[in-house]
Design a protein around this nucleic acid. Structure first.
Lengths: 357, 357
DNA sequence: GCTCGTTGGTAATACGTTATACATACTACA
DNA sequence: TGTAGTATGTATAACGTATTACCAACGAGC
């Protein structure tokens, strides 16, 4: 309610002087005047209106962050890490839950652009970037998080991601090493580039051993379902039930992320399967929950804190310097964390036993 | 980059005319002019600058949301529900992770106020509202979520919460009914009103049966620790380890929320305890994970979706109508969800067994 | 022919802040 | 005394939009 003018009037100085005080330009200012202005500010409980401020300056110290949904613990965690990294550099962040919906993403992007945001971080999103091209052309800097930038030339200014295919290969290799031959992949709708990469990584690793990823070993959720991430665990549960009740069920599951994996464990248990004795499960992400659940989940870790730091640093760099980040496209190595949800398949163990004595 | 002026120039009309088109006031406007303006808008790829718009109109259709941390799945979920409820009514929401820190809360509140936000929803926060009084006086409408409004007269305009003490009593009664006598309470730093209410609810229910909540049955985390919610599971794990290794350990745990409960289960297992055979655990919130973990967690459900709807509706109502919401302070009933993490204590079962035959 | 209302549009101003350029008063020095 | 130099402030034009008041043209009714 109180504006800079009110402060000026109360202190008996000009608006400009108050502005100078606010912005720390009181180097060459009378001590008495400075004092009076400060008193007036506290007395009127004055807060500068940043809307007006940014209208003037043309840009905000604000980053957009578009994620599938903060209800998914992975993205909730990432959001917080990104916010912290941004805050450290004097930037705020606007979080948007786009539910992997291109339409929604575009809407949010428009709204961000209208709020003078000129840099936004895009969490795992649809393969195509076409719906965002116009924003990029208008001057929005887009940073891709957790996805390749394939098909995004010119619209994405920087990116940070784990090598998705490698992560999938590590998981698959681990399962193959344990003796599994029939391994299923479970995921929701596979419309995003990171999910495709994980599926293909798994397929290619299997093929190295002459194994083939059959169609009945790929579970991609109900057709055309627009579920956000809130239902991931639920879907994982359904996936396990359907896969395990079919003829010739898998002995191991590779889930596209930890929430699906956790749900799958639950679904398997309901059918009387024990994890890992009767079924091995590998996840992706290494969310906090994975360490703490029963059994602790074998999973592929994404170094979320490091990724958050990098993406924020790079985006701000491209925003502030004209010449862009020195290394705009970072790909990190994921790490396989072996815990207790994986073991040799039953048949294999029995064979080994017989062979042993 | 393209402003309303550019559109006007391109269409050969005045700025005001374009403004009229944008805001749907083209009722009595020449079809040809309208057409030209619309063409110019799409051609220039024009997006209205909402910063300028709100500077003019003085207020934004934006709500603040201050939560401990979206990295906690409960708050992540709540945030998404609140965002959805707000969007439905044409409002955006700004999410802030304040880590239960009064200082940070005040900082965020200032920043929100400076962004012309005049209504914010405050997730479980410190007991005292003193640090927010000044904002309330400046005209910020504050809605309390998941907490009582005690000590908040005049600063909070509406609130939605579950009856925290009742929830704790339901949980405690359930454990007492199973035969537990030595029940521990685990929580992080107990600086928030909802946590105090849960602790006191438990204490009072125990006393109904002549049971006393000893000091060594209350675990409140490391002294003066400023942890946000990211570490809740970790803390729960530590809690269980410390409580179970002391003399005369508890037979049941009531955790202040599900994340602590899940962590506690993990910690107990590491010590060789089986849940629920050797130790019963009850949580609070009923996050998605609770249903899906092993064993499924007995917990006190907060109807998060309903709460989100109510708080948003009430806050917007007080914002738009001068006379405030008709029922500004809603207290809902929590519900005990009995799953598989609770059972009769061992001693009790043995006694029963001996008595049986 | 005159006023009046209607239709389709324009011009000007305000919103709260910042930045630029300029004004004053005082000091130092020739 | 005049000139330059140096502190210390101030006036004012943007920023992009929304609103208010206003204007022109054109019939219609008197």
């Amino acid at each position: 309610m109180a504006g800079i003018k009110d402060v000026a009037k109360k202190a008996g100085v000009s608006v400009s002087t108050v502005s100078n005080v606010i912005n720390g330009r009181h180097a060459k200012m009378g001590a008495r005047t400075l004092r009076r202005v400060q008193d007036a500010i506290t007395e009127l409980n004055y807060t500068p209106n940043s809307v007006a401020r940014q209208l003037k300056s043309g840009h905000t110290k604000t980053l957009g962050l578009v994620v599938p949904s903060v209800a998914n613990p992975f993205w909730g965690n990432v959001s917080q890490l990104i916010e912290k990294a941004a805050l450290k550099r004097g930037y705020q962040v606007l979080i948007c839950n786009a539910e992997r919906d291109p339409q929604l993403e575009a809407t949010y992007m428009n709204s961000l652009y209208g709020s003078s945001v000129r840099g936004t971080i895009l969490g795992s999103s649809p393969v195509s970037f076409d719906h965002l091209r116009e924003h990029s052309e208008k001057g929005m800097h887009i940073a891709a998080f957790d996805r390749t930038t394939q098909g995004a030339q010119g619209v994405v200014s920087c990116s940070v991601s784990v090598d998705q295919a490698l992560g999938a290969r590590l998981a698959t290799r681990h399962l193959i090493g344990l003796g599994h031959k029939r391994i299923a992949f479970i995921s929701g709708p596979i419309g995003t580039s990171s999910r495709i990469a994980r599926l293909e990584g798994m397929r290619s690793e299997l093929e190295k051993d002459g194994l083939i990823l059959e169609d009945d070993m790929i579970w991609l959720g109900p057709n055309a379902c627009g579920f956000g991430d809130s239902h991931a665990a639920e879907l994982g549960r359904t996936a396990a039930r359907e896969l395990l009740t079919q003829d010739n069920p898998p002995t191991a599951l590779f889930a596209v992320n930890d929430m699906y994996a956790i749900g799958a464990c639950s679904g398997a248990r309901e059918l009387g399967y024990r994890v890992p004795d009767d079924l091995s499960v590998v996840g992706f992400d290494d969310i906090i929950m994975s360490k703490v659940m029963e059994p602790p989940l074998t999973t592929v870790r994404q170094p979320a804190d490091q990724m958050a730091e990098l993406i924020v640093a790079n985006l701000i760099h491209t925003l502030e310097d004209e010449d862009g980040a020195e290394d705009p496209h970072v790909i990190l190595r994921p790490e396989l964390i072996v815990r207790n949800s994986t073991a040799a398949p039953k048949s294999h163990r029995e064979r080994s036993h017989r062979a042993m004595p």
